[in-house]
């Protein structure tokens, strides 16, 4: 860990101004990812700008849905009655994440920016195109058991970690960003994360002079009837091997709308749009689910140790849909 200065900011403008002065500075909210990475010398910042006093708070019902302030903590959102009742997939994903201690610290905005658990990225002794562009990607032929099968490139196969973004991307969440001039823009979460391509170091569309203010989620029948399933190596406190966020609107046994996303398999939170299309208008049967699940992993490019994810992802998706229908 390098030496750094610590500066609390009272407003977004102040925080972004400090960032402008020191380009390599980082914003800190919960710090649950950032400090780990700094201790491991994966990230080095001369300055940390504490944004916890910024007014990006609140879990509110709006005219067309839900608004979650970027500085709300994972535990508060996961245990919020509105979220649990109207957007169960979000609450479930949050409460299956990390540990209570981490959830009490980690912010919603920070969670969307958490970095991959790829062991090559997290140890500076290894080459890694994401950490050190152009140095190579030993994961391609190495320890890739828990790396991505979808959205990969020759440069990078790092999995986007976490659960919240998977649930949010399924429900068409929008990220609200604000820049130094106080100007806001709204970006669908689907477009927020980038595929690695040849530039895996660039992970989101967030500009250096922008902060995440909030996340909004449109209300919908498929949000009210939604569910999250996470498969992992131990019963708690582990990143997903595979996870599935699903939402359905079913009338008379027929699917009116569907939302599907996968975690643990993509280089970004993986929305399965083609698979959704295969559900809409069909009967909510296991066979339909299986067909959709097959479509969800179409184009997967597994490596030596993560081939199992192709099948596990489909099974998890089917299981999530079946549990949702049974609930």
């Amino acid at each position: 860990m390098n030496n750094f200065s610590y500066t609390p900011a009272a407003t977004a403008k102040e925080a972004l101004g400090l960032r402008k002065d020191t380009k390599e500075a980082a914003f800190i909210a919960g710090g649950t990812t950032l400090l780990d990475l700094m201790k491991a010398n994966v990230e080095a910042h001369p300055q940390l700008i504490d944004i916890n006093q910024l007014p990006f708070k609140g879990i509110q019902e709006t005219a067309d849905g839900l608004r979650i302030g970027a500085l709300e903590r994972m535990s508060d959102v996961g245990e919020n009655a509105l979220v649990m009742q109207q957007y169960p997939v979000i609450a479930e994903a949050l409460l299956l994440s990390a540990s209570p201690q981490l959830r009490n610290m980690a912010s919603i905005g920070g969670n969307l920016l958490q970095r991959t658990r790829c062991g090559y990225f997290r140890d500076p002794a290894f080459p890694c195109n994401k950490r050190n562009p152009g140095s190579g990607c030993p994961a391609q032929v190495g320890d890739n058991r828990n790396l991505a099968i979808l959205g990969t490139s020759e440069a990078c196969i790092a999995t986007n970690p976490g659960d919240l973004a998977v649930a949010l991307v399924a429900l068409d969440a929008v990220v609200v960003l604000e820049n130094a001039k106080g100007k806001q823009r709204r970006v669908p979460l689907l477009d927020f994360h980038l595929l690695p391509g040849t530039t895996p170091q660039r992970e989101t569309i967030l500009e250096p002079d922008e902060l995440i203010v909030a996340v909004t989620v449109p209300a919908a029948a498929h949000a009210r009837k939604s569910h999250y399933v996470k498969v992992r190596d131990r019963a708690s406190y582990a990143f997903a091997l595979v996870s599935a966020a699903v939402g359905l609107e079913v009338q008379g046994g027929q699917i009116r709308s569907a939302r599907l996303a996968l975690g643990g398999v993509g280089t970004k939170p993986w929305r399965a749009l083609e698979a959704e299309k295969m559900l809409v208008g069909r009967a909510a049967t296991e066979e339909t689910f299986r067909t959709a699940a097959a479509a969800a992993v179409r184009g997967a490019q597994p490596r030596e140790h993560n081939r199992f994810k192709v099948e596990m992802a489909q099974k998890t998706l089917v299981q999530a849909l079946q549990e949702l229908m049974a609930s």
Partner: peptide
């Protein structure tokens, strides 16, 4: 897990 080319552990945490 020991990396099959670099002989370094990838999950030492």
């Amino acid at each position: 897990f020991r990396d099959p080319n670099l002989a370094r552990y990838t999950n030492a945490s």
